[in-house]
Nucleic acid binder design. Structure first.
Length: 670
RNA sequence: GCCGCCUUAGCUCAGUCGGCAGAGCGACGCACUCGUAAUGCGUAGGUCGACGGUUCGAUUCCGUCAGGCGGCUCCA
């Protein structure tokens, strides 16, 4: 007897003995880790049937790499249990770039533990254990896993072997068509370790490259991500098809760390977080302030041109406003606690005047609503676009504060647009174009859009209006021709949202602008306009921030450019370096001509030698280093050295100035 | 907020098995007058994050707090 299977993707029929498995088919190809049989990812030990469509899957395939990483997680868990046989196992899935495994252990892991575990993992990998799949009944599993409470919970919550539940990306243990255990069998056929797992796995631990994995860090996590559950200790690891790819990944991480905005901010003297002010509350130094001012000035100009009106509002307000807006119901936890003011008591301690609570504002919208509502509004005024660089304060939990990207005090480039329901679709479409255009001007040009839809458990407002707004957002998004992903249930309680995700220079995506439709606030504030027919109508309100927060946007650009801002944003655009002291006056004269054209130029007249000055200016990432010595001076010229080290000598002064001006005005990068 | 780690000169970091500390860079001064990423010499600069405790003695050990880092949760 024999069977015939079809090899994918070549489409080659292949004859095999009856009962053959995929491993037989690929026995000469060690790089094959698993197989895709009729579209389903399975172990190579899976028995094939006549007519199966079989595709080899290697670590170069994303699915294959995930299997490799998942198997590596098993090796980690085995190593942990070698050290601590009482360690209780949580879940251990593959993730972006690696894997993790959660453990309930008496003592958190230390960096020394990780080094020890890595050694043991290497030994396990080299021992060549086979991953052997075994189908079990629920009862058998429960007996075997008697001392693994978390695995028991998984069986229970996922319904065991008859689970029809969708496979969960995070939970690799259960969720297949049957409940399975994976035995690690050593070369003497002894089962040395076992884990509940739906698989699949690589054939043997030898298929995990022993020199291409690394344990990265530890973390405490809540079981099932719920803070009411017990805390487990997680170990994160990374694993790759080969040593070179591991090295490449580690290099990438080092590169990302080098351009961390917190580090660049200190190095380039842009901003700081003085401890005396408080966690998450930044101050901008002159150079950072200049960049920020350029960002803001350009934004202001574009907003003016696009029909926005500028408003200003205070930083604190009485509690009543946030009662009206609903913030105190929905968001009090994220707000700084109130200041209680103006209370008066008499001599006996009786309250004569109850006083008032004042809150720092976490959002600008309630204030803008009051501006809308300050007088009767006509349909002729709509869309009314109110814009403010509004500083807000949010009491972020201490563990989440993170440089400028997650601060407690920050400034939103916040606008609220009031329009009729009929105007909404066109307004949203224009808005999105405006936002994307502006982001491109700042140097970000690779985007995708994310549409966050209603979470029924956490929302207000009617089904129909949500539907209408969501569709309006969707069609505005689709009109951009960009990739659109949906984030089901990700919307805020008051309305659906589109966010723009922008890719930076090293391939990371950042959530930038958000555009959010709100039915709730116009209702709560009783906002109205008079329609053409004289009736009172409720406007639709759109919240939108382009930068999100200026601080955060600043941080993203800083990392995107690695501190080397394009000249229009560079705090110092030109540094003059004299070859010797004798050329300082000449450069100063050129500099004053440049200043007259609005160029930010400094002359380094210090006592350093010329190469040192060039080094300093290079490290400050100044776009143009303007050098002048005898030759340049005699020719009425200067020489430019650019950030990449390229050199252009003997440029006539007038041409040099034009060149800088041109680059600044065109917002080009150099 | 939770878990772990960390905090020594402006910055990056040594160091003290408990006897009050060092380097490089930076700053400042002097000399050098110099053509593309560090000229040389010198000077100043630290209540070793804060407060308590243990100790004859604490920067070092313990505790609390503040700030930071990596995760978790959160990101309206």
């Amino acid at each position: 007897m024999s069977i015939t299977v079809v090899l994918d993707p070549e489409g080659q029929p292949q004859e095999l003995p009856d009962g053959a498995d995929a491993a037989t088919l690929f026995r000469d190809r060690r790089e094959v880790l698993v197989a895709r049989v009729n579209g389903e990812l399975v172990d190579l030990a899976t028995t094939l049937n006549d007519g199966d469509l079989v595709e080899p899957v290697t670590a170069e395939d994303p699915d294959g790499l995930a299997v490799l990483r998942h198997s590596c997680a098993h090796v980690l868990a085995q190593a942990v249990q070698q050290v601590d046989p009482d360690a209780k196992l949580g879940i251990g899935p593959p993730i972006q770039d690696g894997f993790y495994y959660d453990f309930d252990v008496d003592r958190p892991f230390t960096p020394e533990d990780l080094a020890e575990l890595e050694k043991r993992m290497t030994a396990i990998i080299k021992s060549g254990q086979r991953f052997s799949r075994r189908v079990v009944t629920d009862d058998e599993a429960r007996t075997e896993l008697e001392f693994q409470p978390y695995k028991l919970l998984l069986i229970q919550s996922k319904g065991g072997s008859d689970a029809s539940a969708e496979p969960d990306s995070e939970i690799m243990e259960v969720g297949g068509s049957a409940l399975t255990m994976y035995d690690n069998v050593d070369r003497r056929d002894q089962t040395v370790w076992t884990d509940l797992c739906r698989g699949p796995h690589v054939p043997t631990t030898r298929h995990i490259p022993a020199n291409a994995f690394k344990l990265m860090r530890t973390a405490a996590v809540y079981w099932m991500s719920d803070e009411h559950n017990p805390q487990l200790q997680r170990i994160y690891g990374t694993a790759w098809p080969n040593k070179d790819q591991l090295r490449e990944h580690l290099t990438f991480l080092a590169e990302a760390a080098k351009r961390d905005h917190r580090r660049l901010g200190a190095e380039l003297d842009l901003f700081s977080f003085p401890e005396q002010i408080g966690s998450g509350l930044p101050v901008f130094h002159p150079k950072g302030g200049l960049i920020r001012k350029e960002l803001e000035d350009y934004s202001r100009r574009r907003h003016e041109e696009s029909g926005y009106e500028f408003v200003y509002s205070p930083h604190i307000t009485k509690a009543g406003l946030f009662e009206t807006s609903g913030h105190l119901d929905w968001y009090a936890e994220g707000m700084y606690p109130p200041m209680h003011l103006d209370a008066e008591t008499d001599g006996e301690g009786n309250v004569r005047k109850p006083g008032q609570d004042y809150y720092l504002k976490p959002m600008n919208c309630p204030m803008h609503n009051l501006i809308f509502d300050s007088r009767g509004r006509s349909y002729r005024e709509l869309p009314l676009r109110l814009f403010e660089f509004g500083s807000v304060y949010r009491y972020e939990k201490s563990g989440v504060v993170h440089g400028l990207t997650r601060a407690r005090g920050f400034t939103q480039d916040d606008a609220h647009i009031y329009c009729t329901p009929e105007q909404m679709p066109a307004e949203l479409a224009d808005l999105l174009s405006f936002v994307l255009d502006l982001l491109r001007d700042y140097g970000l040009d690779d985007f995708y859009l994310e549409l966050s839809t209603r979470d029924p458990a956490k929302s207000v407002g009617g089904e129909a209006e949500w539907e209408q707004a969501t569709e309006a957002l969707r069609s505005a998004a689709e009109a951009q021709g960009l990739e659109l992903v949906t984030d089901p249930g990700g919307a805020a309680f008051y309305g659906p949202k589109i966010s723009v995700q922008a890719k930076d220079a090293i391939g990371r995506y950042w959530q930038m602008s958000t555009i959010q439709v709100d039915f709730q606030l116009p209702e709560r504030f009783g906002l109205e306009y008079t329609a053409a027919d004289g009736s009172r109508q409720r406007p639709v309100m759109i919240h939108r921030a382009l930068f999100g927060s200026i601080e955060r946007f600043f941080a993203v650009l800083l990392e995107h450019y690695n501190g080397a801002f394009p000249p229009w944003l560079a705090p110092v655009q030109v540094v003059g370096v004299p070859v010797s002291d004798a050329h300082v006056d000449y450069l100063a004269e050129v500099a004053s001509q440049m200043r007259a054209r609005g160029i930010r130029v400094e002359i380094d007249s210090g006592s350093d030698r010329m190469p040192k000055k060039i080094r300093n200016a290079t490290r400050a990432k100044v776009p143009f280093i303007m050098i002048a010595g005898d030759e340049d001076q005699a020719a009425g010229a200067v020489s430019f050295r650019m950030r990449d080290g390229t050199q252009d000598n003997g440029i006539p002064v007038a041409d040099a100035i034009e060149r800088v001006v041109e680059v600044i005005e065109s917002k080009a990068q150099v």
